[in-house]
Every structure is written in C-alpha cells, then in structure tokens.
Amino acid sequence: MRISFKINGKKVSVDVAPEARLLDIIRDELGLTGTKEGCSKGECGACSVIVDGELVNSCLFPASQAEGRVITTIEGLSLGDKIHPIQKAFIDEGAVQCGFCTPGMVLAAKVLLDKKRNPSEEDIKKALSGNLCRCTGYTKIKNAVKKAAKKR
C-alpha cells in the first residue's frame, strides 16, 4: 500500500507492506538512521519519534497508520549545520556516552519542553521514563534537559 506523510518538514510518499513498522520505513526506506532499534518491544524508547506532537515507539507503530501524519525524527531537529539547543545541552552536560538512546531521549525532552516551559524534576523524570539509558545513570540527562529548558 502507498502512504504519504510529512517527515521533518518534507512530504514523502512510500510503498509499504501493510504490516510494516514505521521504524523500518524511517530507517530503510527513507535512510534516516538516527532512529534506533533497541528492544522491539516498546520497553527501551530508542526508536522514539514524534508523531503529531506526541512521542511514540516507532517499532510498535503500524506504518499504514502514518498516512497524513506529521513526523519528526532526530534528523529534523537541527537547522542545517546548527544543532538544536537540546542537543547542545546534551553535549555540554556530558549526557551522551554510547549514544544509542540519545535520539530518543532528545525527542522525549523536546515533546516535554514544547508543552512545558519550566518543567519540574518530576516532570522531566516522567517525560523520559519511557527511554532507557544503560550508560549514564540519567543524572546528566536530567541536567541537560534542565539546562535546555533554562536557555529557552
């Protein structure tokens, strides 16, 4: 089946198997490999993308349901060579180690900061609760989100 949607500001139209996952369309068809596959069970959040303003696991998202949606992946955050303030904050705070969870974490932070200008510690923990990091221990990630919130 053919589906059309907007991804990172660009309209695309792709042929998909009816049961295909949005994750595979993003990575294999569109070549946007910033979105990672971790657990394939919706437990790690590495595959998180933003669909119509909400965070979802693209490994559990039927590609056929992406018709007409507006999608943002990590590649959609930077403006040319200029990285997004949240990405900058992650770098400045040392919130990236192996980096595999980072795209999902940054997008989770983006959804939070789009909705709340001054999130509390609890807000941050909750917003990032669907994203696992096995390297940093979360403190630096939380600090990065706080820093990004302050800079807005």
């Binding site: 996952r21 490994c59 559990l60 998202f61 039927p62 349901q65």
Partner: peptide, 25 residues
C-alpha cells in the same frame, strides 16, 4: 489492531505469522 502496543510486540516476536490483522483505527 488499534494502537499496536500489544499486537506489534507479538508481530516483532514472530507470533501472529498466520493471522489476519484487522486495523480498526
């Protein structure tokens, strides 16, 4: 199939290989 959060876990696991999926979304 609605949101897919249970069904796609099963699909990713290789279950439902012979199933007919009906998307009610």
């Amino acid at each position: 199939l609605a949101g897919g959060t249970d069904i796609y876990v099963a699909l990713n696991d290789g279950a439902l290989a012979c199933a007919t999926l009906c998307d009610i979304s």
